[in-house]
Amino acid sequence: MANNTVTVSGERGSAASPIQSTRKRWWRWLSGDMILAFLVLLPSIIAVAIFIYGFIGWTFYISMSDWKSSIPDFTFVGLKNWTRLVNDRRFQMDMRNHLFYAIGFIGQCIVIGFTLATLLDQKIKGEGLFRTLFIFPFAVSGIVTGVTWQWLMQPSTGINLIFAKLGMGWFRPTWHANIEYGIWAVSIAAAWQFSGYVMALYLAGLRGIPAELREAAAIDGAGTWALYRYIIIPLLMPVTFTVFVLTGMNSIRIFDVVAALGGPGPGNSIDSLALNMFQTTFGAYRFSLGAAIGSVMMFLAIFLVVPYLMSMQRETER
């Protein structure tokens, strides 16, 4: 304690002139609005520091302790839980599932969302009705989506009946129960729910493109394809990027749809990290292992969010 104080005051003393000028500026910032803003923000800052960053740190610490029963045990064991996790078949399967799910989910959301938005942007009749219809699934909870699609994807009674009626009886997939490809079926159910929201984002983006740009392109002889290829899609890149981050985050934390579809599924075919973490922590009381899974989810999220924040900053600077 005492040592610290001495060092600090020493530092201050040693570099007198440059610090004084910064201090002056610092003081100016502290006056008036800034001090009020700081005070207003202070409760939030403290809450965020404790409840978000504090608990993230705590989770990471737990992941390196030996807490594996109902009795908390904070003995430091280094990377033991992490080694176990990396070698765990279920965890490996989870990582595979998240990759496939993300590809399927993000792809479907962007393609379906953009297509619907483009169609709605053609100044059609009853646009409001369609817009509401398409976005409606987003108002439904993930559990409801999962339960509904579990019925729809029953091999002998669900949507396969439609294929059979259409004379496509040979096409009889087992959907989410497929041991190899079940996770793709989960991405269909989730995309059904989320695509409407993506459509709304794209629609807002499309409406924000000035009519002059389209007219100018038309005068320059651009057809519909060229208009979209060279004007609209590039201009919508910020929206696409936002959609990518949103759907990417969803791909990392997917839990409700998987749980309602009967996760983890045969051979963990539709398991997700969040479901694994829940069962590991509260089903088996392996708190440290659960914390390690939670940390993995957080690192995956950081990979997505940091580039997003950096690009946002670049945009603001521009």
Binding site: K68, R90, P264, G265, G267, N268, A284, R286
Partner: peptide, 18 residues
Amino acid sequence: KQSFLLDYDLALNDMVAT
């Protein structure tokens, strides 16, 4: 105990697939 039960169920859940 619960942790064994989860492992037991997961092992069987694997056997359905493998």
